[in-house]
Design a protein around this nucleic acid. Structure first.
Length: 267
DNA sequence: ATGGCTGTGAAACACAGA
């Protein structure tokens, strides 16, 4: 089973790219971020025509998240984080799909540092960490996938020294990510590729993609109930080179079959 | 170190992204 995450940077402007990639890769579950469209403009007809059921949480111009399931209807379990009713950003949606709880997230960018946007990022991270703790306690397989807007280590940045005061690489944000992982999550890509340079984003500026001046900011966190199923992980880097590409590339993990554990001894 | 590019909403440029 293939689970993917893709920050599309505008689901309507990017629709040809999204459909082409869905057709090519045929993932079973897809988390999308940065829809940049209100709910009524989500292209559900085209996505259904491609063979996917979907739930989504959009808003005008910015943010927006969705979960797609091939031949299936994701069952929404949550929309938005806990702990701040005044936060109206569409950045988190969660569903039970194919016997997994999938949280799809778009963590705030946080630039410029310092400032209120950076503070909002750290607060959002705290609220995500609290929710992640709740999910860990629920005794179900969980994947938290999406655009975390953080490079966890120096290995995840083409030129770390240039990013030290950027909100994506500030020490506070890296620590927040490490604290989250410490609850017992597995960073799927890094787990399978401990020392490889892997990027999921390349800036539109300065020919970043051609120079491979990239960042690894799209992540999959797996809880202990699903981590044993992890078989492979990668980035569909070539998609970043397509016409009208997003600045992110689709990123995916492959899971083996469900491991049924026998809870009672048979006679 | 800076500015470079792109999508959206609106109808020119502002804003956000990372």
């Amino acid at each position: 089973m293939l689970v993917a995450t893709f920050n599309v940077n505008g689901v309507n402007g990017r629709l040809p790219v999204l459909l082409r990639w869905l057709e090519e890769r045929r993932p079973d579950i897809v988390c999308l971020q940065e829809l940049k469209a209100p709910d009524e403009k989500f292209p559900i007809k085209e996505i259904e025509k491609a063979g996917y059921g979907a739930i989504w949480h959009g808003q005008k111009s910015w943010n927006g998240v969705a979960i797609l399931a091939m031949g299936d209807a994701p069952e929404e379990t949550r929309r938005g984080l806990l702990g701040d009713k005044n936060d109206l950003h569409a950045r988190y949606i969660e569903a039970a799909v194919k016997e997994i709880v999938v949280g799809c997230l778009y963590l705030p960018n946080g630039n410029p540092y310092p400032g209120p946007k950076f503070d909002y990022k750290l607060k959002w991270f705290e609220r995500l960490t609290k929710l992640a703790n709740v999910l860990q306690a629920a005794d179900v397989p969980v994947i938290l996938a999406g655009d975390y807007n953080v490079m966890p280590t120096k290995l995840d940045v083409y030129k770390p020294e240039r990013w030290t005061d950027d909100a994506l690489f500030r020490i506070e944000v890296r620590e927040a990510y490490a604290n989250l992982v410490k609850q017992g999550w597995v960073d799927a890509i890094r787990h399978l590729h401990p020392s490889e340079r892997i990027y999921t984003f390349w800036d539109y500026f300065r020919n970043a993609y051609v120079r491979n001046a990239g960042l690894r900011i799209d992540h999959f966190l797996l809880n202990p109930l699903i981590a044993p199923r992890l078989k492979a992980a990668g980035v569909d880097k070539h998609v970043r080179g397509w016409e009208k590409a997003s600045d992110h590339a689709p990123t995916w993990i492959e899971l083996g079959p469900i491991k049924r554990t026998r809870t009672t001894k048979r006679a």
